[in-house]
């Protein structure tokens, strides 16, 4: 999977490294700002109220 992504990245190695880091940053941002905030309230370990 990762080897395949690496082969799709255009440009010489140095450019590819930058592109790969950008991809990782994009995925991490998507997780932190969209996916995790959505998942968080659906998980059972954060209920602090009674009744």
């Amino acid at each position: 999977m990762y080897a395949w992504i690496w082969r799709q990245l255009p440009g010489p190695t140095a450019v590819r490294v930058v592109e790969a880091l950008l991809l990782v940053a994009a995925v991490v941002a998507l997780l932190l700002f969209v996916v995790f905030p959505w998942v968080d309230p659906r998980l059972p370990f954060n209920d602090v109220t009674t009744g």
């Binding site: 370990f45 209920d47 602090v48 109220t49 009674t50």
Partner: peptide, 15 residues
């Protein structure tokens, strides 16, 4: 004051 208990769980409530 109410919170979850034990820590990292919501099985009970600490009051």
């Amino acid at each position: 004051l109410t919170t979850c208990h034990p820590r990292f769980s919501a099985e009970q409530r600490l009051i």
